[in-house]
Amino acid sequence: MTEHESTIDLNPAADEIIDDSMAVDDAPAVKRKGRGFASTAESRVSNKYDSYDRMDEDSTVQVSTNAQRSVEGWIVVVTGVHEEADEEAVTEKFAEYGEIKNLHLNLDRRTGYVKGYALIEYETYKEAKTAIDSANNTQFYEQTIHVDFTFVRPPEGSGRQPDRRDSRRRQRSASPGKRW
């Protein structure tokens, strides 16, 4: 009995489906490497559960882009942030476009320097959009930074229809060891 079988089967129906046509998903040119392919470990996370929490559409805000609002505001991502930039400098630059509600300037776990991206929360769409329009492709610490919304709305066709959405991929998890 494998480790996998001893765990709770989150998707019992899948075991009854045998579909060898799904067995090989990689093109022949794809190079595979790793013990994970031989293991009977669980299938992809998306196969396992029927539904995930996501942000509801906010119909009160009319925006022309496909940006997605977060719970308390709009999250902007800045990439190309110099490794020696600090929170103070990022705050100083981006407070110009609106009040910063939250700033995540994550560090590289190996070096301890800035990883290269910043996530900034503004309360309003207008502030976030101004930051993007004003700071995208500008210089910061002698590097070009890119500024954009972090989250977008789900593409058409990936709405809240867990059964239909998952039915095809669910079949892929049927044959153990042939996860892709």
Binding site: Y49, S51, Y52, D53, R54, M55, A67, Q68, V77, T79, K115, G116, Y117, H146, V147, D148, F149, T150, F151, V152, R153, P154, P155
Partner: peptide, 20 residues
């Protein structure tokens, strides 16, 4: 409880993930 969350990332965010 099982926490399950789903988001869609912009191309800029995805590109940064690829760089990492």
């Amino acid at each position: 409880s099982l926490i399950r969350k789903e988001m869609h990332l912009s191309p800029t965010m995805l590109k940064e993930l690829k760089r990492i």
